[in-house]
Amino acid sequence: MPEKTSDLIQGTLDMLILKTLALEPMHGYGISIRIEQISSGVFKPNAGSLFLAVQRLERDALIDAEWQPTENNRRAKYYSLTQKGRKRLNDETREWSRQIAAVARILEAS
């Protein structure tokens, strides 16, 4: 586990959540763990900012939610990507790659 977690650039958490949900519907904690695992612990969204982003995405109709029982007999909201969310994810991924490439070029040029 790395010592330090990074703060996310504003707006990227939304994208990461969408990406996570593209694989399968998931509850809040699952999303958090998945982001932490895939980023090897660089990003570790806490409950507040995670649900804030989830609420925003849900209100923009990018994801849907459904209450389902969890493994340990509680219930949690499972989120899944909507058609609109999938499209947004594709758009943002493309845009992100374009920007990364551009930033990389600038950094290498100097």
Binding site: H27, G28, Y29, S32, A47, L50, F51, T70, N72, R74, R75, A76, K77
Partner: peptide
């Protein structure tokens, strides 16, 4: 919302 966050914490 409380329930959801509590579930998160519990997990």
């Amino acid at each position: 919302l409380s329930e959801e966050i509590a579930a998160f914490a519990e997990m």
